[in-house]
């Protein structure tokens, strides 16, 4: 009986559906993490500046991080969805989800990276400054290498959490893993079986990522000598 169900669940059509869902989830996660990290880095660097000329940009970066970390993911998704509809941009639901995940990841990672950069002692900045390092040279040669080990662990724990949150894209009709599983249960397949499969697929995405995070952590701890 269950053999019959399994064979039927993994029919060609259903497997394609699941793989497409997996691909959508994978893309949302990877692009969200990557774009979010890059944008978050820029936001963090901007927020660490002191010059008067950059004050408006600094305020904007602060407000952005402040707001988007306080709005539920689903609400951000809806906001982008309705904004795209009313602006006649006519983004596909996938693009809407993609924009949303990038917005959210950038806000969170901006905060994580900023706090990492700020954890480096002020005297390192001063030493660099008196040796005529520019702001960016100080960051590149002195501050970022020291902040890295502080930034990596929370960043990867955010990535792992974030992959699961992309499931919310199912709410606006993006055919990612969670939506695909809904379709399959609606077709009458055993929910335990369908969600069991989806669980494995989510795990397949997030486990290698957390392993990578662990490895990065160790190698960074090795380049800077470990304290006893």
């Amino acid at each position: 009986m269950s053999d019959f169900h399994l064979a039927e669940l993994f029919s060609y059509y259903n497997v394609v559906l699941l793989l497409k869902g997996l691909a959508a989830t994978f893309l949302l996660s990877v692009i969200g993490c990557f774009a979010g990290f890059v944008a978050g880095f820029v936001i963090a660097i901007l927020r660490m500046t002191r010059s008067l000329a950059l004050a408006p940009l600094r305020a904007a970066a602060f407000t952005y991080c402040f707001l988007f970390r306080r709005i539920p993911f689903l609400v951000t998704l809806m906001l982008v969805f309705f904004a795209s509809q009313s602006s006649k941009l006519e983004l596909s639901t996938f693009s809407v989800a993609l924009v949303s995940v990038c917005l959210i990841a950038a806000a969170y990672l901006g905060e994580i990276i900023r706090s990492g950069l700020e954890s480096v002692h002020k005297n390192q900045w001063e030493a660099a400054q008196t040796l005529n390092f520019s702001y960016l040279e100080s960051l590149r040669h002195v501050i970022v290498p020291q902040a890295w080990p502080i930034i990596v662990p929370p960043t990867f724990s955010f990535f792992v959490m974030f992959i699961k949150d992309t499931a919310l894209a199912s709410q606006i009709g993006v055919m990612e893993l969670t939506s695909a599983s809904k379709v399959l249960t609606n077709k009458g397949f055993s929910a335990a079986l369908v969600y069991g499969t989806v669980l494995v697929l989510y795990f397949l995405i997030s486990y290698p990522l957390s392993r990578l995070g662990k490895r990065l952590e160790n190698s960074l701890a090795a380049t800077r000598n470990r304290r006893p």
Binding site: N123, Q124, A127, A128, N132, V142, R224
Partner: peptide, 30 residues
């Protein structure tokens, strides 16, 4: 700052660099 140098009470060496790198970075990179 290219004609005056300062040494701080708390040394302020770059923690991510070796002794040699600390001494070499400014002349080479800056």
């Amino acid at each position: 700052r290219s004609s005056i140098a300062i040494v701080f009470q708390q040394y302020n060496l770059f923690q991510n660099m070796t002794v040699l790198e600390n001494v070499m970075i400014t002349p080479t990179r800056i």
